[in-house]
Each structure stands twice: as C-alpha cells, then as structure tokens.
Design a protein around this nucleic acid. Structure first.
Length: 368
DNA sequence: GAATCGTGGCT
DNA sequence: TAGCCAAGATT
C-alpha cells in the first residue's frame, strides 16, 4: 500500500454527500431563494455582480439598498447613472457599476426585461464573465453549468490534490468542477460548494473533520489540504504620491468636488481635486483656486489593488462668494451623500474637514 | 498571460 | 504592521 496514490473523488459519491450537508447547513442569504421559492433572475444577477471579489458581509447592505430602490431590471435601467454610482459608492471595482447599468439597459430595452436563460447568452452581457454566466444559469435557471469561483477553485484543488499553481490551474479545476456537477439542482450544488468553501474548506485551517467530503478528498489523504491551492507569487505594490485640495467655502461649509474621467481608476466617481498620483515623488502643487492653502500634518493612506497611495491633504477656507472653477462644483456637507464618493475620497474629506490646524506651506503653492 | 481595477476584515 | 483574500471581468 505504501506509495499508493489515493483515488480521485467520485461524482456519484461527492454530489449526494454535498447535497445532504447543504440541506442542513446552507447559509441564509438575502439574495438566496428559500426552499420551494422560484429564484428571481434579477436578484440573482445583481447579487452575483456585487459579490465579485467582495465579501458576503459587505454586499448585504448594498443589496438591500438596491433592491429596495430598484426592485426590478426595468427600474434599474430607468435610473440615473449618477444615482446608481452613488448607491454603489464604497463597494469598489466601479466598472462593475458602469457595466451593471449597461447590462440592465440591454436586458430591459432589447430583451423585454428577461435575462437570457443560457450560459452563452448571459456571457454576452456587459459585466458577465465566465463565473457569473455559469452562476446565474445554474442558480436562476437550473442549468447544469460548471460554476468556478475562488471558493470552488480551492475546494477542487484540494479534492483532486491539484498542485499546479493558480491561475494556470484554472482550466483543470474547471474540468474537475464540471465532472462533479449533477444534473439535479445544479444551482444548489454550486451554492453548496461555495458554502463549503466559506464554512469548512476555508483558505486557512480547513475544518476537515467536519467536512462531508473528507472521505473523497485526495488533498486530505495526502496531508496537503491546507497548502492548496498553490498560487503564483504576487507582485509587490509600489507607492504613489499625490496631493488633494480640500477647499471649504465660508457660510455653508461647502467643499469643492470634481468628477473623474468616465473610465479607468474610480471612473465616473466624484473626487476632491488634486494632482496626478505618481511614483516619481511629490507632484508639483497646482491648487484648483488661489487661496491660503495649508498642509495637514497627517497624510491619507489608502491601498488599491495594485498600489499604495499616500495623499498629502491641503486645506483652505475661501469666501462665500468664491465661484467654482470650471468643471468643479461646490457641495454643501448635507449634499455629500448624493455624490458618488469612493472610500479614498471620503478619507480625504474626513481628514480635511475634521482635522484641526494644518501646516503653513511655501508661498509659491498658494497661488495657481 | 499579464495588468488593471476597490475595499474591508482577519491574521 | 503587512500580507492575504473575497461569489472576477475586461483589455
């Protein structure tokens, strides 16, 4: 027996064992149909877009806000872009929101309000890639699609003891997932695998003794479960530096805001005017208007997916009659909630509005 | 294949 | 503190 390789997991054992576990352990989630309920494709789609690279706990409040305000795809398609971006603010990956709008309008306008019921049809829509197409097809339309998200990648890598590092292993893992997908209730099967990944087969310290699949798990048999999946090494994040100008208007305390370009980083979102963000050192000061700018002693730090950002915040108080420069807008504090401010800009405003004092800066900075 | 694209929670 | 990672898509 020594040196014998454990057998691969068998679909006729794995899927039923998983289904029994799921019947007793399924998480109750706001977007999930209760047993016996017919899933609403709109809610399934909306939740899947929101859940891309985003935790269940973070999505919850956003899902409630969206479905409360826009209960169906027609309502969402008819909403203003700015209102949707504002409701999305803080959730991150803002291209998702821009694609959400485009997708809703295609479905409402060209497809009679009905989402395609096939994986291929769904995959043609903006913001719907391989994962989301499979997930919506399986969960909303009971199609036997092979769903592969980060959870299922991990479960498959362990079940099959797949040592090829991600992302190269993805096609292999997808084939494994497809081989295990039953024709009966494939949506429940996919959600069961995701719940298993979230509750038992966790990234660190998997709870193998409680796993319904432990008897079929090659990774566990080989003592490798906790080390899988392997991943290609990640690139180090550089640090970029920038300046942000918080102008405060006398009287109502309004602040000056601008709008970012429609695509790219934080595309279409509101911003505090500032410099470019560069790795080359401190950018040249170019205030949006002439004023007595004072540098705050505390910088704002924020980390994006591929770089760290360190912003120096400058603040100035200006007269109530000061006109807004071209492309910018005075926004009173109580109106800030109506603007699509990403988290990094909320941090800048918090620093600029709350923090006392502020350091005098060289005079050449004071006039643009 | 490699880069780009947010944020928050946990270790 | 610093890294890891989450129901990925797009270019």
């Amino acid at each position: 027996m020594t040196g014998m390789s454990p057998p691969p997991p068998r679909p006729d054992r794995v899927a039923p064992a998983l289904a029994r576990w799921y019947a007793a352990n399924a998480r109750v989630l706001p977007w999930r149909a209760r047993p016996g309920e017919v899933p609403d494709p709109y809610r399934v789609w909306l939740s899947e877009i929101m859940l891309q690279q985003t935790t269940v706990a973070t999505v919850g409040p956003y899902f409630h806000a969206f479905t409360g305000r826009w209960p169906d795809v027609h309502a969402l398609a008819g909403a203003d872009d700015q209102a949707i971006l504002t409701a999305w603010a803080g959730l991150g990956y803002y291209a998702r929101a821009r694609n959400l709008i485009r997708c809703a309008r295609v479905v409402a306008g060209e497809l009679g309000g009905r989402f395609p019921d096939s994986e291929a049809g769904l995959a043609k829509l903006p913001g719907i890639g391989p994962y989301t197409a499979a997930a919506v097809a399986a969960i909303a339309f009971d199609r036997p699609a092979a769903v592969l998200d980060g959870n299922i990648e991990r479960v498959m890598a362990r079940l099959f003891a797949e040592e090829t590092p991600l992302p190269a292993a993805k096609p292999l893992l997808r084939r494994h997932a497809a081989a295990l997908t039953p024709t009966v209730r494939p949506g429940d099967h996919a959600q069961a695998l995701m719940d298993l990944g979230a509750l038992i087969c966790t990234p660190r310290r998997p709870d193998c003794p409680r796993c319904p699949l432990v008897g079929d798990c090659r990774g566990h048999a080989l003592g490798l479960a906790a080390e899988l999946p392997r991943r290609a090494p990640k690139k180090a994040k550089p640090t970029r530096l920038g300046l942000a100008y918080v102008a405060i208007r006398a009287g109502d305390g309004a602040v000056l805001l601008g709008r970012r370009p429609p695509s790219g980083l934080l595309g279409g979102m509101a911003e505090v005017p500032g410099s470019d963000w560069t790795e080359q050192g401190a950018p040249a000061p170019r205030p949006p208007l002439s004023a007595d700018w004072r540098r705050l002693s505390r910088t704002v730090r924020h980390t994006f997916t591929h770089f760290h950002l360190e912003l120096t915040v400058l603040r100035a108080s200006v007269a109530a009659a000061t006109p807004a420069p071209a492309g910018l807008l005075w926004v009173p504090p109580q109106a800030l909630a109506g603007h699509p401010l990403p988290t990094v800009m909320r941090k800048v405003l918090a620093a600029g509005l709350d923090s006392p004092g502020g350091k005098r800066i060289p005079s050449r900075v004071r006039n643009s």
